[in-house]
Design a protein around this nucleic acid. Structure first.
Lengths: 251, 251
DNA sequence: AGAGCTTTGTGTCAATTTTACACTATGCCA
DNA sequence: TGGCATAGTGTAAAATTGACACAAAGCTCT
């Protein structure tokens, strides 16, 4: 991202990049923040790609991922987790990709391995930054994504799977919801991530039994139907729960 | 590993290495194959390290991990799974580490990120290769490992955790056992990996209900107690099981 | 004001799974 | 033959899961 000033005394490492799968939830379905690389000169490859960049030699991988995220979204201190490293020697092959890579200061001929992360953000908090990328960034429902540039589709699949496994073990889903949310929204979220229907009553029962939600004395307003009670995630109660060795939400 | 001939047309990538956490099971506890780097000139750091090496520019990460594994153990086609990428810019700091790195052709000053894998091998299959490393390689019980060179201890922890999670979802433990094994051995294995006691009768019931073992009409011999029946893992039955969408062993 | 629409919120019962727990059987060894 | 060590087995109570249907609340439209 050429608008970012190069840090003094640091160099881009030509061999290692990070890519971020930034998940959001529009209260209906799971979405991912993708970048439209625009019309590509000679290429016919997919236009959409995950945000990412080369790392600097003086930052660690987590820092690099946080940086990429912040440059694009302006968000800091958000949930971020490594998915893994990807990198076939021939992962870059299209002429169009080379052009693109030059634009982010990568050397098109270099063999690059990329470390993928996924992050969970509240879509409402997202404010596109004035970077060259953010202009072309957009939330796309995961289920509508059929292909991506480079090996990004493969990375997306791995990120979805990791998220799926992780949410069975930790209640990280709250990072995707507003502070105040309804049980129905939480229900939809779990269905989206686990990619299967969950019985409404059984879901509610299970969640309530965990006792990690605070019920607010507050209702939805302005909805054209019976308004729902609002809830908040209760970090303290969750900490108590984990201290008992609990690590299985049973989904 | 300087005894390995450099592949024609390939170069070592100075920025990316792989490290392998090679798990074994001595029928009592979980062990890891570590390399003793020997007396270190000026250093006081830990002598033991995970096997690993830089990657070649013409191999992918999985291939590199398989290569490291084969160079050390002579084993091929064994269970291997990525743990993740590690790499603080300052992960190498000791003078002694620099000497060591030179010996594996790494550039001591370069910033290296490493991609960690874990693999599961039958200890009985392990035959040390005639490499400079294998002479000093040895199986160490995981619970006795208190420190390792570089950031390898952190990697080991991550590998243990990954193995723990994975075995709750897939019956990969069989890779650590001989073809024929007893239920008690399997029981001990699960206890070692999950790091908690499991009730004997409940464990046996659960495993048997899965119906992925073939009972052999054969008993242990030469043991100074009642001999146990021997079992084999039944790959076909496991495939049937997974085709029902099964992905939770309930541990 | 009332009818209709949409989503919320709730309980029970049967089936399954989990947990806790102790004694007999078998083969080796001394 | 007695002692030792581990294998192998069953049950009952408690907890969890899965399937399932209808009344309540607020909005909208007429």
């Amino acid at each position: 991202m050429h608008h970012i000033q190069k840090k003094i005394g640091s160099e881009l490492n030509p061999n290692v990049s990070v890519d971020c799968v930034i998940f959001g939830f529009d209260l209906e379905q799971l979405t991912v923040l993708l970048i439209d690389r625009g019309e590509i000169p000679s290429g016919s490859g997919p236009r959409m790609a995950l945000p990412g960049n080369l790392i600097y030699d003086n930052e660690n991988l987590d820092q690099a991922a946080n940086r990429v995220l912040a440059e694009l979204t302006g968000l800091e201190n958000i949930y971020l987790e490594q998915v893994g490293a990807f990198g076939d020697p021939d992962r870059i092959h299209k002429e169009s990709d080379r052009e693109w890579l030059k634009s982010i200061r990568a050397e098109p001929e270099a063999r690059v391995i990329t470390v993928a992360y996924f992050s969970l953000v509240q879509m409402a908090h997202y404010k596109p930054q004035a970077s060259s990328f953010a202009k072309n960034a957009d939330w796309i429902p995961v289920n509508e994504i059929k292909e991506l540039a480079f090996d990004h589709f493969e990375i997306l699949q791995a990120a979805k799977e990791k998220l799926k496994q992780k949410i069975k073990i930790q209640p990280i889903g709250f990072n995707l919801l507003p502070e105040k949310f309804t049980l129905s929204q939480l229900h939809r979220l779990y269905e989206s991530i686990l990619d299967k229907p969950l019985d409404k009553r059984n879901f509610r029962r299970k969640i309530q039994k965990l006792d990690i939600l605070s019920s607010l004395r507050e209702k939805q307003k302005g909805v054209p139907h019976k308004p729902s009670l609002l809830y908040e995630f209760n970090e303290e109660k969750y900490q108590e729960l984990t201290q008992t060795g609990f690590d299985n939400f049973g989904f």
